[in-house]
Design a protein around this nucleic acid. Structure first.
Lengths: 224, 224
DNA sequence: ATTTGCACGATTGTATCCAATATACAACCT
DNA sequence: AGGTTGTATATTGGATACAATCGTGCAAAT
């Protein structure tokens, strides 16, 4: 028998189809705000970008539609789903319900490694100078706190909710003092995790999300 | 200007494509348990059932995959997602988090009409003799209590969670005393709504869901 | 000037065909 | 017999071709 490890055999069966690649790329572009909401996505244009036919593009769009990121009208096309301030508030409130439960379940299951990893991501976020990376690092940090929860459904629900408002989270981080405050709150959450205080970590997470929500809606109601 | 209401103008643009029809039919069949979990869905077979090509079938399957009802492996096919007892428990717990919030937001916004409608559905469920209809009536009843919440994201999240465990909700209702107990609890929830007691309605909803969960998992751990 | 009808291009929805891959089974070797 | 290799068939993934629909501009009618 050959040594499997020497080949680093990857699971080919689960390799990405064109449809998967296109889906992931579009999803990333949408949640990062690189495609602005309301913009219509033309099948042909996307197909040409990826050098494929429209078939895999359509399948990718159907999946994005199922997760709410785009809205489709027959014979007219799909547009990046617009989202109202009320919906943003609702989704932040949803996150503030789900994510504290995730972290509360995680804390008693965290290992030294996962705590170190979380602290490292916390530091990366705090030290990163380039604003374009704050969103990714912020999300990685929060995800790392939920990995031990053993709550896949909650985790997926939180991820979906984050996808819908990701571009507003990024906007909030770019607000005056938005990131500064996040840095402080992140460290407090990590500290609570290190002490094994699940309830405090949950409460801090909830506050962190709601604080971002109010500071964001204050900005959106005023300026936009 | 013509009177729009007199026309009851339906949104023609949103008329159903083949892909939509197939998606809805498959979804209904899966959540009702008519297609059992683990069973593989052949594109060709489905296409022939609906007298269409495989293209709209594939799009329907991609959407089902995005909502978690089926699992797809490249070049092998899609199977109805199996679900473990742990996942069932998690999703019931998720419902027990979300649905009380929905009803709590609904209660202060309920009208006499919506209360009457809920009571009517409550009665229909209690009086229905045919076991095959209990699942639908149960779901209609609960949905009616959430309609006034003005929380579309919560509502959609609850609907998706219900889809995933619908067949187990049905099983639970068929258990000894499962339905009897549901009937009592439903009436208590409606009564709390009529009194405008949002917190009690929420607490009762939470108990209702958790009670179903424990009675169900007790059955699944023992028998299955 | 405004409205109505229509032709045409652009775009989406679906069918049909081909390629890539998996599965089952036969042939073969030891 | 047991296992391995080759081959046929079934099934999915994707490309191409065609049909259905939408939107727009323009001309004719009022």
């Amino acid at each position: 028998m050959i040594d499997k490890l020497s080949l680093r055999a990857s699971n080919l069966g689960a390799s990405a189809s064109s449809s998967d690649v296109i889906h992931d790329a579009l999803r990333a572009a949408i949640i990062r705000g690189e495609i602005e909401e309301g913009q219509t996505l033309r099948q042909d244009a996307i197909a040409k970008m990826f050098n494929v036919s429209r078939i895999p593009v359509r399948e990718a769009l159907k999946r994005l539609e199922a997760s709410g990121l785009v809205t489709s009208v027959r014979y007219k096309g799909v547009v990046v789903s617009p989202i109202s301030v009320a919906e943003i508030e609702e989704i932040f409130e949803f996150r503030a319900t789900i994510e504290p439960q995730l972290i509360a379940h995680s804390v008693p299951r965290m290992t030294t490694e996962s705590l170190d990893h979380a602290q490292a991501l916390c530091n990366s976020f705090a030290q990163e100078k380039e604003a374009g990376l704050w969103g990714d690092l912020n999300r990685q940090f929060h995800s790392s706190l939920y990995l031990n929860a053993q709550r896949p459904y909650y985790f997926a629900a939180a991820a979906a909710a984050n996808d819908r408002v990701e571009r507003y989270i990024r906007a909030q981080l770019s607000l005056t003092h938005g990131r500064d405050r996040a840095i402080e709150e992140h460290q407090m959450i990590v500290d609570a995790c290190c002490k094994g205080d699940a309830q405090r970590a949950a409460a801090l997470t909830r506050d962190h999300i709601m604080q971002a929500s109010t500071s964001l809606t204050k900005f959106l109601d005023r300026g936009d």
